[in-house]
Design a protein around this nucleic acid. Sequence first.
DNA 1: GGCCGGCATCAAGATTTCGTCAAGACGCCA
DNA 2: TGGCGTCTTGACGAAATCTTGATGCCGGCC
Lengths: 230, 230
Amino acid sequence: MQQGSPLILIVEDEQPIRRFLRASLTSEGYRLNEAASGEEALRVAASYPPDLVLLDLGLPDIDGQEVLSRLREWLTAPIIVLTARDQEQQKITALDAGADDYVTKPFATGELLARMRTALRHAQHLAAESPTVRVGDLRFDLPARLVFKRDTQIHLTPLEYKLLATMLKHSGKVLTHRFLLREVWGPEDSQETHYLRVFVASLRRKLEDDPARPRYILTEPGVGYRFAAE
Amino acid sequence: MQQGSPLILIVEDEQPIRRFLRASLTSEGYRLNEAASGEEALRVAASYPPDLVLLDLGLPDIDGQEVLSRLREWLTAPIIVLTARDQEQQKITALDAGADDYVTKPFATGELLARMRTALRHAQHLAAESPTVRVGDLRFDLPARLVFKRDTQIHLTPLEYKLLATMLKHSGKVLTHRFLLREVWGPEDSQETHYLRVFVASLRRKLEDDPARPRYILTEPGVGYRFAAE
DNA sequence: GGCCGGCATCAAGATTTCGTCAAGACGCCA
DNA sequence: TGGCGTCTTGACGAAATCTTGATGCCGGCC
Protein backbone atom coordinates (compact mmCIF):
# COMPACT_ATOMS: atom_id res chain seq x y z
CA MET A 1 0.00 0.00 0.00
CA GLN A 2 2.85 2.30 -0.91
CA GLN A 3 0.86 5.10 -2.44
CA GLY A 4 -1.76 5.54 0.20
CA SER A 5 -4.78 3.86 -1.30
CA PRO A 6 -4.81 0.10 -1.72
CA LEU A 7 -4.16 -1.38 -5.15
CA ILE A 8 -6.86 -3.80 -6.23
CA LEU A 9 -6.40 -6.36 -8.97
CA ILE A 10 -9.61 -7.32 -10.77
CA VAL A 11 -9.48 -10.63 -12.59
CA GLU A 12 -12.64 -10.92 -14.64
CA ASP A 13 -13.23 -11.81 -18.27
CA GLU A 14 -16.70 -10.31 -18.67
CA GLN A 15 -16.38 -6.76 -19.90
CA PRO A 16 -19.63 -5.43 -18.33
CA ILE A 17 -18.83 -6.70 -14.86
CA ARG A 18 -15.34 -5.28 -15.11
CA ARG A 19 -16.72 -1.91 -16.07
CA PHE A 20 -19.13 -2.04 -13.19
CA LEU A 21 -16.41 -2.94 -10.71
CA ARG A 22 -14.17 -0.24 -12.07
CA ALA A 23 -16.84 2.35 -11.45
CA SER A 24 -17.63 1.19 -7.92
CA LEU A 25 -14.07 0.81 -6.78
CA THR A 26 -12.51 3.93 -8.21
CA SER A 27 -15.27 5.98 -6.64
CA GLU A 28 -14.19 4.46 -3.33
CA GLY A 29 -10.70 5.72 -3.94
CA TYR A 30 -9.05 2.39 -4.70
CA ARG A 31 -6.35 2.16 -7.32
CA LEU A 32 -7.06 -0.53 -9.90
CA ASN A 33 -5.41 -3.03 -12.19
CA GLU A 34 -7.40 -5.29 -14.47
CA ALA A 35 -6.81 -8.63 -16.09
CA ALA A 36 -9.16 -10.44 -18.45
CA SER A 37 -7.46 -13.83 -18.31
CA GLY A 38 -5.54 -16.01 -15.93
CA GLU A 39 -2.26 -15.55 -17.73
CA GLU A 40 -2.61 -11.82 -17.65
CA ALA A 41 -3.57 -11.89 -14.00
CA LEU A 42 -0.37 -13.68 -13.06
CA ARG A 43 1.72 -11.33 -15.17
CA VAL A 44 0.12 -8.17 -13.82
CA ALA A 45 0.19 -9.37 -10.22
CA ALA A 46 3.88 -10.10 -10.56
CA SER A 47 4.62 -6.67 -11.99
CA TYR A 48 2.34 -4.71 -9.69
CA PRO A 49 1.80 -6.66 -6.50
CA PRO A 50 -1.75 -5.88 -5.42
CA ASP A 51 -3.01 -5.28 -1.90
CA LEU A 52 -6.15 -7.27 -2.67
CA VAL A 53 -7.35 -9.48 -5.51
CA LEU A 54 -10.89 -9.90 -6.79
CA LEU A 55 -10.82 -13.16 -8.71
CA ASP A 56 -13.59 -14.47 -10.92
CA LEU A 57 -13.36 -18.24 -10.96
CA GLY A 58 -14.91 -18.62 -14.42
CA LEU A 59 -12.03 -17.63 -16.65
CA PRO A 60 -11.52 -18.48 -20.31
CA ASP A 61 -7.96 -19.80 -20.35
CA ILE A 62 -6.56 -21.25 -17.14
CA ASP A 63 -8.79 -22.61 -14.44
CA GLY A 64 -9.52 -19.98 -11.81
CA GLN A 65 -8.44 -22.39 -9.11
CA GLU A 66 -5.09 -22.70 -10.82
CA VAL A 67 -4.66 -18.93 -10.85
CA LEU A 68 -5.56 -18.89 -7.18
CA SER A 69 -2.94 -21.37 -6.11
CA ARG A 70 -0.26 -19.90 -8.36
CA LEU A 71 -0.90 -16.53 -6.74
CA ARG A 72 -0.92 -18.00 -3.25
CA GLU A 73 2.53 -19.41 -3.78
CA TRP A 74 3.94 -16.00 -3.14
CA LEU A 75 1.19 -13.42 -2.63
CA THR A 76 0.08 -12.83 0.92
CA ALA A 77 -2.51 -10.17 0.09
CA PRO A 78 -6.14 -11.22 0.59
CA ILE A 79 -7.93 -12.84 -2.35
CA ILE A 80 -11.71 -12.55 -2.64
CA VAL A 81 -13.30 -14.98 -5.04
CA LEU A 82 -16.33 -14.24 -7.22
CA THR A 83 -18.49 -17.28 -7.89
CA ALA A 84 -21.81 -18.06 -9.49
CA ARG A 85 -24.60 -18.79 -7.05
CA ASP A 86 -24.83 -22.47 -7.95
CA GLN A 87 -21.13 -23.28 -7.63
CA GLU A 88 -21.13 -24.39 -4.01
CA GLN A 89 -18.28 -26.85 -4.31
CA GLN A 90 -16.14 -24.28 -6.09
CA LYS A 91 -16.25 -21.96 -3.12
CA ILE A 92 -15.01 -24.61 -0.78
CA THR A 93 -12.06 -25.69 -2.88
CA ALA A 94 -11.21 -22.03 -3.41
CA LEU A 95 -11.17 -21.36 0.31
CA ASP A 96 -9.04 -24.46 0.81
CA ALA A 97 -6.63 -23.23 -1.82
CA GLY A 98 -6.09 -20.02 0.08
CA ALA A 99 -8.91 -17.66 -0.83
CA ASP A 100 -9.83 -15.36 2.05
CA ASP A 101 -13.49 -14.83 1.25
CA TYR A 102 -16.03 -15.18 -1.51
CA VAL A 103 -18.92 -13.21 -2.97
CA THR A 104 -21.60 -14.86 -5.07
CA LYS A 105 -22.70 -13.22 -8.28
CA PRO A 106 -24.81 -11.24 -8.69
CA PHE A 107 -23.66 -9.27 -5.70
CA ALA A 108 -24.58 -5.99 -4.08
CA THR A 109 -21.89 -3.33 -4.21
CA GLY A 110 -22.28 -2.63 -0.53
CA GLU A 111 -21.56 -6.20 0.43
CA LEU A 112 -18.53 -6.46 -1.79
CA LEU A 113 -17.07 -3.25 -0.43
CA ALA A 114 -17.68 -4.35 3.14
CA ARG A 115 -15.93 -7.66 2.58
CA MET A 116 -13.03 -5.89 0.93
CA ARG A 117 -12.64 -3.55 3.88
CA THR A 118 -12.66 -6.48 6.28
CA ALA A 119 -10.08 -8.36 4.28
CA LEU A 120 -7.79 -5.34 4.00
CA ARG A 121 -8.07 -4.60 7.70
CA HIS A 122 -7.33 -8.20 8.53
CA ALA A 123 -4.30 -8.25 6.25
CA GLN A 124 -2.88 -5.24 7.99
CA HIS A 125 -3.08 -6.98 11.34
CA LEU A 126 -1.23 -9.97 9.99
CA ALA A 127 1.54 -7.83 8.66
CA ALA A 128 2.15 -6.46 12.13
CA GLU A 129 5.02 -7.96 14.04
CA SER A 130 4.41 -11.13 15.93
CA PRO A 131 3.45 -10.44 19.52
CA THR A 132 6.27 -10.71 22.02
CA VAL A 133 6.26 -11.04 25.78
CA ARG A 134 8.83 -9.14 27.78
CA VAL A 135 9.99 -9.95 31.27
CA GLY A 136 13.01 -8.07 32.54
CA ASP A 137 15.69 -8.35 29.90
CA LEU A 138 14.06 -11.45 28.45
CA ARG A 139 11.89 -11.45 25.38
CA PHE A 140 9.68 -14.29 24.16
CA ASP A 141 8.46 -14.56 20.59
CA LEU A 142 6.03 -17.38 21.09
CA PRO A 143 4.76 -17.80 17.51
CA ALA A 144 8.35 -18.07 16.32
CA ARG A 145 9.33 -20.13 19.34
CA LEU A 146 12.27 -17.86 20.01
CA VAL A 147 13.74 -16.59 23.27
CA PHE A 148 16.05 -13.61 23.61
CA LYS A 149 18.09 -12.19 26.44
CA ARG A 150 19.16 -8.62 25.81
CA ASP A 151 18.51 -9.10 22.07
CA THR A 152 20.76 -12.10 21.71
CA GLN A 153 18.99 -15.29 20.93
CA ILE A 154 19.07 -18.12 23.42
CA HIS A 155 19.02 -21.67 22.24
CA LEU A 156 16.72 -23.96 24.19
CA THR A 157 16.27 -27.69 23.83
CA PRO A 158 12.70 -28.99 23.31
CA LEU A 159 12.17 -29.87 26.97
CA GLU A 160 13.80 -26.70 28.22
CA TYR A 161 11.48 -24.70 26.01
CA LYS A 162 8.42 -26.65 27.00
CA LEU A 163 9.21 -26.21 30.68
CA LEU A 164 9.87 -22.52 30.32
CA ALA A 165 6.73 -22.02 28.26
CA THR A 166 4.58 -23.70 30.90
CA MET A 167 6.04 -21.56 33.63
CA LEU A 168 5.59 -18.46 31.51
CA LYS A 169 2.00 -19.40 30.80
CA HIS A 170 1.26 -19.36 34.53
CA SER A 171 3.80 -16.74 35.44
CA GLY A 172 3.54 -15.37 38.95
CA LYS A 173 1.79 -18.47 40.24
CA VAL A 174 3.48 -21.14 42.28
CA LEU A 175 3.61 -24.34 40.27
CA THR A 176 3.97 -27.62 42.08
CA HIS A 177 6.51 -30.20 41.04
CA ARG A 178 3.74 -32.57 40.13
CA PHE A 179 2.00 -30.02 37.94
CA LEU A 180 5.12 -29.11 36.00
CA LEU A 181 6.11 -32.74 35.54
CA ARG A 182 2.67 -33.63 34.26
CA GLU A 183 2.62 -30.73 31.84
CA VAL A 184 6.07 -31.27 30.40
CA TRP A 185 6.87 -34.96 30.80
CA GLY A 186 3.38 -36.40 31.07
CA PRO A 187 1.57 -38.19 33.87
CA GLU A 188 4.02 -41.13 33.78
CA ASP A 189 6.92 -39.17 35.15
CA SER A 190 5.05 -36.99 37.63
CA GLN A 191 7.29 -38.28 40.46
CA GLU A 192 10.64 -37.65 38.85
CA THR A 193 11.33 -34.38 40.59
CA HIS A 194 14.97 -34.83 39.75
CA TYR A 195 14.21 -34.04 36.12
CA LEU A 196 12.95 -30.68 37.22
CA ARG A 197 16.08 -29.82 39.14
CA VAL A 198 18.29 -30.64 36.20
CA PHE A 199 16.27 -28.65 33.70
CA VAL A 200 15.62 -25.69 35.96
CA ALA A 201 19.35 -25.55 36.52
CA SER A 202 20.08 -25.48 32.82
CA LEU A 203 17.41 -22.87 32.20
CA ARG A 204 18.89 -20.71 34.92
CA ARG A 205 22.33 -21.10 33.44
CA LYS A 206 20.99 -19.78 30.15
CA LEU A 207 18.61 -17.07 31.33
CA GLU A 208 19.83 -15.72 34.64
CA ASP A 209 22.67 -13.27 35.15
CA ASP A 210 23.60 -15.09 38.36
CA PRO A 211 22.18 -18.63 38.31
CA ALA A 212 22.92 -18.96 42.02
CA ARG A 213 20.60 -16.07 42.84
CA PRO A 214 17.86 -16.40 40.28
CA ARG A 215 15.66 -13.50 39.30
CA TYR A 216 13.23 -15.20 36.94
CA ILE A 217 12.88 -18.83 37.93
CA LEU A 218 12.33 -18.86 41.68
CA THR A 219 12.33 -21.86 43.97
CA GLU A 220 9.43 -22.33 46.34
CA PRO A 221 10.99 -24.74 48.85
CA GLY A 222 9.01 -27.88 49.43
CA VAL A 223 6.39 -26.93 46.86
CA GLY A 224 7.70 -26.17 43.41
CA TYR A 225 8.79 -23.25 41.25
CA ARG A 226 7.51 -19.88 40.24
CA PHE A 227 8.27 -17.69 37.25
CA ALA A 228 8.71 -14.06 38.29
CA ALA A 229 5.69 -12.05 37.17
CA GLU A 230 7.22 -8.64 36.83
CA MET B 1 18.15 -1.30 -23.56
CA GLN B 2 21.67 -1.00 -22.28
CA GLN B 3 22.80 1.94 -24.39
CA GLY B 4 19.92 4.28 -23.81
CA SER B 5 17.90 3.91 -26.95
CA PRO B 6 16.09 0.66 -27.67
CA LEU B 7 17.56 -1.77 -30.17
CA ILE B 8 15.07 -2.78 -32.86
CA LEU B 9 15.48 -5.85 -35.03
CA ILE B 10 13.80 -5.56 -38.42
CA VAL B 11 13.08 -8.87 -40.13
CA GLU B 12 11.92 -8.11 -43.65
CA ASP B 13 12.97 -9.47 -47.01
CA GLU B 14 11.67 -6.68 -49.23
CA GLN B 15 14.42 -4.11 -49.72
CA PRO B 16 12.17 -1.03 -50.21
CA ILE B 17 10.18 -1.62 -47.05
CA ARG B 18 13.37 -2.17 -45.10
CA ARG B 19 14.79 1.10 -46.36
CA PHE B 20 11.60 2.88 -45.45
CA LEU B 21 11.61 1.45 -41.94
CA ARG B 22 15.25 2.28 -41.48
CA ALA B 23 14.53 5.90 -42.29
CA SER B 24 11.54 6.21 -40.01
CA LEU B 25 13.07 4.46 -37.06
CA THR B 26 16.53 5.97 -37.02
CA SER B 27 14.96 9.40 -37.18
CA GLU B 28 13.10 8.44 -34.00
CA GLY B 29 16.42 7.65 -32.36
CA TYR B 30 16.13 3.87 -32.31
CA ARG B 31 19.17 1.71 -32.90
CA LEU B 32 18.65 -0.86 -35.64
CA ASN B 33 19.59 -4.32 -36.75
CA GLU B 34 18.28 -5.84 -39.95
CA ALA B 35 17.74 -9.33 -41.25
CA ALA B 36 16.48 -10.30 -44.71
CA SER B 37 15.75 -13.93 -43.92
CA GLY B 38 14.57 -16.12 -41.07
CA GLU B 39 17.94 -17.75 -40.58
CA GLU B 40 19.63 -14.41 -40.39
CA ALA B 41 17.03 -13.10 -37.99
CA LEU B 42 17.68 -15.91 -35.53
CA ARG B 43 21.44 -15.43 -35.81
CA VAL B 44 21.34 -11.68 -35.34
CA ALA B 45 18.85 -11.84 -32.52
CA ALA B 46 21.06 -14.34 -30.73
CA SER B 47 24.14 -12.14 -31.11
CA TYR B 48 22.47 -8.82 -30.38
CA PRO B 49 19.37 -9.40 -28.26
CA PRO B 50 16.88 -6.79 -29.42
CA ASP B 51 14.50 -4.80 -27.24
CA LEU B 52 11.80 -5.17 -29.87
CA VAL B 53 11.33 -7.18 -33.06
CA LEU B 54 9.47 -6.12 -36.19
CA LEU B 55 8.78 -9.36 -38.00
CA ASP B 56 7.42 -9.70 -41.50
CA LEU B 57 5.60 -12.99 -41.77
CA GLY B 58 6.19 -13.44 -45.50
CA LEU B 59 9.80 -14.57 -45.57
CA PRO B 60 11.65 -16.44 -48.31
CA ASP B 61 13.31 -19.26 -46.38
CA ILE B 62 11.75 -20.33 -43.11
CA ASP B 63 8.11 -19.73 -42.37
CA GLY B 64 7.60 -16.51 -40.43
CA GLN B 65 5.61 -18.38 -37.81
CA GLU B 66 8.57 -20.67 -37.31
CA VAL B 67 10.88 -17.71 -36.73
CA LEU B 68 8.38 -16.31 -34.28
CA SER B 69 8.19 -19.40 -32.12
CA ARG B 70 11.92 -20.01 -32.30
CA LEU B 71 12.45 -16.48 -31.01
CA ARG B 72 9.85 -16.86 -28.31
CA GLU B 73 11.66 -19.83 -26.90
CA TRP B 74 14.04 -17.47 -25.21
CA LEU B 75 13.28 -13.86 -26.14
CA THR B 76 10.97 -11.92 -23.87
CA ALA B 77 11.16 -8.66 -25.79
CA PRO B 78 7.96 -7.67 -27.61
CA ILE B 79 7.49 -8.90 -31.17
CA ILE B 80 5.32 -6.92 -33.57
CA VAL B 81 4.24 -8.80 -36.64
CA LEU B 82 3.79 -7.26 -40.09
CA THR B 83 1.09 -8.93 -42.15
CA ALA B 84 -0.68 -8.42 -45.42
CA ARG B 85 -4.21 -7.11 -45.12
CA ASP B 86 -5.82 -10.31 -46.34
CA GLN B 87 -3.99 -12.69 -44.02
CA GLU B 88 -6.49 -12.71 -41.17
CA GLN B 89 -5.74 -16.23 -40.03
CA GLN B 90 -2.02 -15.52 -39.96
CA LYS B 91 -2.48 -12.74 -37.42
CA ILE B 92 -4.29 -15.00 -35.05
CA THR B 93 -1.78 -17.83 -35.15
CA ALA B 94 0.98 -15.27 -34.73
CA LEU B 95 -0.62 -13.84 -31.61
CA ASP B 96 -1.08 -17.33 -30.28
CA ALA B 97 2.57 -18.09 -30.93
CA GLY B 98 3.61 -15.18 -28.76
CA ALA B 99 3.48 -12.07 -30.93
CA ASP B 100 2.56 -9.00 -28.91
CA ASP B 101 0.84 -6.99 -31.61
CA TYR B 102 0.46 -6.76 -35.38
CA VAL B 103 0.36 -4.10 -38.04
CA THR B 104 -1.17 -4.71 -41.46
CA LYS B 105 0.68 -3.62 -44.57
CA PRO B 106 0.56 -1.07 -45.92
CA PHE B 107 0.79 0.82 -42.68
CA ALA B 108 1.05 4.41 -41.59
CA THR B 109 4.32 5.33 -39.91
CA GLY B 110 2.49 7.04 -37.10
CA GLU B 111 0.54 3.94 -36.19
CA LEU B 112 3.59 1.71 -36.28
CA LEU B 113 5.54 4.06 -34.04
CA ALA B 114 2.65 4.31 -31.60
CA ARG B 115 2.37 0.54 -31.34
CA MET B 116 6.08 0.24 -30.85
CA ARG B 117 6.03 2.73 -28.02
CA THR B 118 3.20 0.89 -26.34
CA ALA B 119 4.94 -2.43 -26.67
CA LEU B 120 8.21 -1.06 -25.33
CA ARG B 121 6.51 0.63 -22.41
CA HIS B 122 4.64 -2.52 -21.59
CA ALA B 123 7.77 -4.63 -21.81
CA GLN B 124 9.60 -2.29 -19.50
CA HIS B 125 6.95 -2.68 -16.86
CA LEU B 126 7.10 -6.42 -17.08
CA ALA B 127 10.83 -6.54 -16.91
CA ALA B 128 10.85 -3.92 -14.20
CA GLU B 129 9.62 -5.47 -11.02
CA SER B 130 8.77 -8.93 -10.39
CA PRO B 131 8.66 -8.69 -6.63
CA THR B 132 11.87 -10.31 -5.48
CA VAL B 133 12.84 -11.22 -1.97
CA ARG B 134 16.44 -10.92 -0.95
CA VAL B 135 18.07 -12.74 1.92
CA GLY B 136 21.83 -12.53 2.16
CA ASP B 137 23.23 -13.36 -1.25
CA LEU B 138 20.06 -15.19 -2.22
CA ARG B 139 17.30 -13.75 -4.35
CA PHE B 140 13.86 -15.20 -4.89
CA ASP B 141 11.56 -14.36 -7.77
CA LEU B 142 8.50 -16.03 -6.35
CA PRO B 143 6.04 -15.45 -9.21
CA ALA B 144 8.50 -16.90 -11.67
CA ARG B 145 9.62 -19.63 -9.25
CA LEU B 146 13.26 -18.73 -9.71
CA VAL B 147 16.06 -18.72 -7.17
CA PHE B 148 19.41 -16.99 -7.53
CA LYS B 149 22.59 -17.06 -5.51
CA ARG B 150 24.89 -14.16 -6.25
CA ASP B 151 22.99 -13.59 -9.51
CA THR B 152 23.49 -17.07 -10.86
CA GLN B 153 20.35 -19.08 -11.13
CA ILE B 154 19.99 -22.16 -8.99
CA HIS B 155 18.10 -25.12 -10.33
CA LEU B 156 15.69 -26.63 -7.82
CA THR B 157 13.52 -29.70 -8.25
CA PRO B 158 9.77 -29.21 -7.69
CA LEU B 159 9.84 -30.50 -4.13
CA GLU B 160 12.99 -28.63 -3.25
CA TYR B 161 11.34 -25.45 -4.43
CA LYS B 162 8.11 -26.11 -2.59
CA LEU B 163 9.96 -26.79 0.63
CA LEU B 164 12.10 -23.71 0.29
CA ALA B 165 9.11 -21.55 -0.59
CA THR B 166 7.17 -22.64 2.49
CA MET B 167 10.11 -21.94 4.74
CA LEU B 168 10.57 -18.57 3.13
CA LYS B 169 6.90 -17.76 3.55
CA HIS B 170 7.27 -18.18 7.29
CA SER B 171 10.86 -17.05 7.51
CA GLY B 172 12.16 -16.45 10.99
CA LYS B 173 9.66 -18.77 12.54
CA VAL B 174 10.46 -22.24 13.71
CA LEU B 175 8.56 -24.68 11.55
CA THR B 176 7.89 -28.11 12.99
CA HIS B 177 8.60 -31.22 11.00
CA ARG B 178 4.93 -31.98 10.91
CA PHE B 179 4.03 -28.59 9.56
CA LEU B 180 6.59 -28.70 6.78
CA LEU B 181 5.67 -32.24 5.81
CA ARG B 182 2.00 -31.37 5.71
CA GLU B 183 2.58 -28.29 3.59
CA VAL B 184 4.92 -29.91 1.10
CA TRP B 185 4.05 -33.60 1.02
CA GLY B 186 0.48 -33.49 2.32
CA PRO B 187 -1.11 -34.88 5.48
CA GLU B 188 -0.40 -38.46 4.45
CA ASP B 189 3.34 -38.18 4.89
CA SER B 190 3.39 -35.98 7.97
CA GLN B 191 5.45 -38.59 9.81
CA GLU B 192 8.17 -39.11 7.23
CA THR B 193 10.73 -36.82 8.80
CA HIS B 194 13.39 -38.57 6.81
CA TYR B 195 12.16 -36.84 3.66
CA LEU B 196 12.90 -33.54 5.29
CA ARG B 197 16.45 -34.46 6.17
CA VAL B 198 17.19 -35.51 2.63
CA PHE B 199 15.70 -32.44 1.03
CA VAL B 200 17.09 -29.98 3.53
CA ALA B 201 20.49 -31.50 2.85
CA SER B 202 20.14 -31.01 -0.87
CA LEU B 203 18.86 -27.46 -0.46
CA ARG B 204 21.82 -26.66 1.76
CA ARG B 205 24.19 -28.13 -0.79
CA LYS B 206 22.75 -25.76 -3.37
CA LEU B 207 22.24 -22.62 -1.32
CA GLU B 208 24.76 -22.55 1.50
CA ASP B 209 28.40 -21.61 1.21
CA ASP B 210 29.24 -24.20 3.83
CA PRO B 211 26.46 -26.79 4.04
CA ALA B 212 27.92 -28.11 7.29
CA ARG B 213 27.47 -24.74 8.98
CA PRO B 214 24.29 -23.41 7.39
CA ARG B 215 23.44 -19.74 7.38
CA TYR B 216 19.99 -19.84 5.85
CA ILE B 217 18.33 -23.13 6.67
CA LEU B 218 18.82 -23.66 10.38
CA THR B 219 18.08 -26.80 12.37
CA GLU B 220 16.05 -26.56 15.53
CA PRO B 221 16.95 -29.89 17.08
CA GLY B 222 14.01 -31.97 18.12
CA VAL B 223 11.54 -29.47 16.70
CA GLY B 224 12.04 -28.60 13.07
CA TYR B 225 13.73 -26.07 10.86
CA ARG B 226 13.87 -22.33 10.51
CA PHE B 227 14.73 -20.09 7.61
CA ALA B 228 16.95 -17.22 8.72
CA ALA B 229 14.95 -14.02 8.81
CA GLU B 230 17.65 -11.42 8.28
C1' DG C 1 27.91 -31.29 66.63
C1' DG C 2 25.95 -34.79 63.76
C1' DC C 3 22.21 -36.31 60.94
C1' DC C 4 18.74 -35.71 57.44
C1' DG C 5 15.86 -34.06 53.62
C1' DG C 6 15.34 -30.99 49.92
C1' DC C 7 17.86 -28.65 46.51
C1' DA C 8 21.71 -27.54 43.06
C1' DT C 9 25.38 -28.94 40.08
C1' DC C 10 28.23 -31.83 37.26
C1' DA C 11 29.23 -35.37 34.18
C1' DA C 12 28.97 -39.90 32.15
C1' DG C 13 26.21 -43.10 29.60
C1' DA C 14 21.87 -44.09 26.95
C1' DT C 15 18.81 -42.67 23.64
C1' DT C 16 16.98 -40.11 20.17
C1' DT C 17 17.48 -37.26 16.36
C1' DC C 18 20.36 -35.46 12.25
C1' DG C 19 23.23 -35.39 8.22
C1' DT C 20 24.99 -37.85 4.45
C1' DC C 21 25.66 -41.11 0.85
C1' DA C 22 23.94 -44.11 -2.34
C1' DA C 23 21.04 -47.56 -4.33
C1' DG C 24 16.53 -48.54 -5.90
C1' DA C 25 11.87 -47.09 -7.68
C1' DC C 26 9.24 -44.18 -10.30
C1' DG C 27 7.42 -41.26 -13.94
C1' DC C 28 8.14 -38.84 -18.12
C1' DC C 29 9.63 -37.80 -22.70
C1' DA C 30 11.82 -38.84 -26.84
C1' DT D 1 11.74 -48.95 -24.62
C1' DG D 2 15.64 -46.70 -22.75
C1' DG D 3 17.53 -42.76 -20.65
C1' DC D 4 17.02 -39.04 -17.58
C1' DG D 5 15.75 -36.43 -13.70
C1' DT D 6 13.42 -36.92 -9.54
C1' DC D 7 11.72 -39.00 -5.47
C1' DT D 8 11.84 -42.71 -2.01
C1' DT D 9 14.07 -45.74 0.99
C1' DG D 10 17.80 -47.83 3.64
C1' DA D 11 22.14 -47.74 6.24
C1' DC D 12 25.42 -45.66 9.30
C1' DG D 13 28.33 -42.29 11.70
C1' DA D 14 27.82 -37.87 14.14
C1' DA D 15 25.56 -34.72 17.01
C1' DA D 16 22.28 -33.21 20.30
C1' DT D 17 19.41 -34.25 23.92
C1' DC D 18 17.70 -36.77 27.80
C1' DT D 19 18.31 -39.75 31.72
C1' DT D 20 20.60 -41.21 35.58
C1' DG D 21 23.84 -41.37 39.29
C1' DA D 22 27.26 -39.14 42.26
C1' DT D 23 28.41 -35.35 45.04
C1' DG D 24 28.08 -31.09 47.70
C1' DC D 25 25.53 -27.39 49.95
C1' DC D 26 22.31 -25.54 53.28
C1' DG D 27 19.14 -25.20 57.08
C1' DG D 28 16.46 -27.48 60.57
C1' DC D 29 16.17 -30.83 64.14
C1' DC D 30 17.59 -34.33 67.39
